[in-house]
């Protein structure tokens, strides 16, 4: 069965995935809306930037985050100067890393969903007296709900499987930064295959169930694109 250390890692992982997904939905919705609707000429820069974590090795991302968040980095120094805990090797640091790492998996489905609505329903709502904000909440959001479901599950599942970034900026502090993938890695290193199996199988099952939910509820599921 699960050891208490493994359970701690499991709950930490779920907490990290939950917080990360929540933050991504909050900042990702307006960003995806902007990317879908704006006619700004250079928005492809922004799109490329959002897609970057898809191609970069997580270690690269983690390395630069470490430099940024560490006590000598700009963000780390800032935190220290205001008397806060340094961000590297903390749960908050992990959240920042995960938000960047999982960003395309949330932004892209949302952007696609907003694109698919097209201009017509929004124009119709405008001629019916709805202000831009009103149109966003009463037309765009409800019509994009399948995109939100996809974004939610992909963002959550992708954060569950995070390893490289955590390894670089999180380390291995139980209850603070030791997530599932690190725990599995440690079990394998110390040849505790039974424990590694249990955790790995749980992760496979959990991810599979979530993806099944997406495919079942959403016929037009789109795989994240580059």
């Amino acid at each position: 069965m699960f050891t208490s250390a493994d359970l701690t890692a499991l709950f930490l992982t779920l907490k990290l995935a939950f917080v990360t997904t929540l933050i991504l939905l909050i900042i990702g919705t307006p960003l995806a809306w902007f990317l879908a609707r704006s006619r700004w000429r250079y928005k492809f820069f922004l799109e490329a930037l959002v897609a970057l974590p898809l191609v970069l090795p997580p270690t690269v991302l983690g390395f630069y985050l470490l430099l940024m968040l560490g006590t000598n980095g700009p963000l780390g120094a800032l935190m220290q100067s205001i008397g806060a805990e340094p961000l590297a090797f903390s749960f908050t640091g992990l959240v920042i890393g995960s938000v960047i790492y999982s960003m395309p998996f949330v932004i892209q489905p949302l952007q696609d969903a907003f694109n698919n609505i097209g201009r017509r329903p929004l124009e119709a709502a405008a001629t019916l007296g709805a202000s831009p904000l009103d149109r966003f909440f009463t037309i765009a959001l409800p019509l994009a709900r399948q995109g939100f479901l996809t974004a939610l599950v992909l963002g959550f599942a992708h954060t569950l499987g995070e390893f490289g970034v955590v390894l670089m900026i999180g380390g291995n502090i139980p209850g603070e930064t030791k997530v599932l993938s690190i725990a599995i890695y440690e079990h394998v290193e110390t040849l505790e295959y039974a424990n590694a199996h249990l955790l790995s199988a749980s992760l496979v099952l959990l991810s599979f169930l979530m993806l099944i939910a997406v495919y079942a509820l959403n016929g037009r599921f789109k795989v994240v694109r580059l």
Partner: peptide, 10 residues
């Protein structure tokens, strides 16, 4: 009121 050529129902 605006009636579009193709469907724009919500």
């Amino acid at each position: 009121g605006f009636v579009f050529q193709e469907a724009s129902l919500f």
